[in-house]
């Protein structure tokens, strides 16, 4: 007779045992990748059910944004179009990924509360679901980048290996922020409002649609806007390889350190509240 799965839970033990249990949750959640990818795809399907273009609305709206802002802002800032549009288009696509992942992860546990309350699925699954959904959305925006690259003839300048490294750095960092947000937003329902406000603010103070070298006064705020701004480094990691620019070493170092510290914190937070998350919902 085959051995049946055994599920044993006792009262909360030492922090070390909770850390081990959190580790098992993560391991199991990776094993069940088919579940969260399916849920993610179904979310997208569900969101665009009955719409003609489906998820290509994401492509279309990004495209419209790039054309509109590209024409107006390039002139306002006196930057030549062939320099401004590639910079801004890549910035907008990367920013959309970062902001939508962080924003939607606030609902990760809340949306799945019915599932969470009726079984023993490892909780990280629901965060992976959100991240996976965001990656699929990001993939839909690649068309915009390719179109811009073709139009401005920089398609062959794209440094693919570096882009892969940069994308991994971005995803790993955005993931721990998502992990954190999912827990915090389930516990404190104000977090979503705070997030929405913060994200808008960060959009304007980060070089998403403006080019630091072409702006006056950036030097005075160098540390706030660039050096200490994680979003600046995230943008660098993905944008520079696309534009055929080198990724500054300090950006890579910043992202690696941030990923390690961030994940360590997020993991410890998860370990200490994993038993409570179900009660937050």
């Amino acid at each position: 007779m085959t051995r049946l799965p055994r599920h044993y839970v006792a009262a909360r033990g030492s922090f070390a045992s909770e850390l081990a249990a959190a580790g098992r949750d993560f391991a199991q959640s990776f094993q069940q990748w088919r579940l969260w990818t399916t849920l993610a795809f179904n979310d997208i399907l569900s969101r665009y059910r009955g719409s003609l273009l489906g998820p290509f609305w994401i492509t279309l709206s990004t495209g419209a944004f790039v054309i509109g802002i590209g024409i107006v802002y390039g002139r306002l800032m006196h930057v030549p179009t062939e320099k401004y549009v590639p910079w801004m288009a890549t910035g907008v696509v990367i920013w959309n990924f970062i902001s939508s992942t962080v924003l939607e992860s606030g609902d990760a546990y809340i949306h799945s509360s019915v599932i969470i309350r009726s079984g023993s699925l490892p909780l990280p699954i629901f965060v992976w679901r959100v991240i996976c959904r965001s990656i699929v959305n990001l993939a839909h925006q690649v068309t915009v980048i390719i179109a811009v690259a073709l139009w401005f003839h920089f398609l062959l300048k794209i440094n693919l290996p570096m882009l892969v490294v940069g994308t991994v750095l971005v995803v790993v960092n955005v993931s721990w922020v998502s992990f954190f947000t999912a827990i915090a937003a389930a516990r404190f329902r104000d977090i979503q409002q705070v997030n929405a406000t913060l994200i808008q603010l960060v959009f304007f103070i980060s070089p998403v649609i403006w080019i630091p070298s072409d702006m006056q006064g950036v030097q005075n705020l160098q540390s706030l806007l660039l050096t200490l701004n994680p979003v600046y480094h995230l943008l660098n990691a993905m944008r520079n390889p696309i534009l055929g620019l080198p990724v500054p070493l300090h950006s890579i170092a910043f992202l690696v350190v941030m990923a390690v510290l961030g994940w360590a914190l997020a993991f410890m937070l998860y370990a200490s509240v994993r038993r409570r998350i179900v009660h937050y919902l």
Binding site: L4, P5, R6, H7, Y8, V9, A10, A11, R12, N42, L45, S46, R49, V114, I115, I116, R117, S118, G119, S120, R275, V278
Partner: peptide, 30 residues
């Protein structure tokens, strides 16, 4: 397996199927 004990222990051997909530994981539009 949704709630962890505050005291005592739960041991379950075997795969559990639950009908606690009819719509669990269902998408009304699908």
């Amino acid at each position: 397996g949704a709630y962890a004990p505050d005291e005592g222990s739960i041991e379950v051997e075997g795969r559990v199927a639950s009908l606690l909530d009819l719509m669990v994981g269902m998408d009304p539009f699908a």
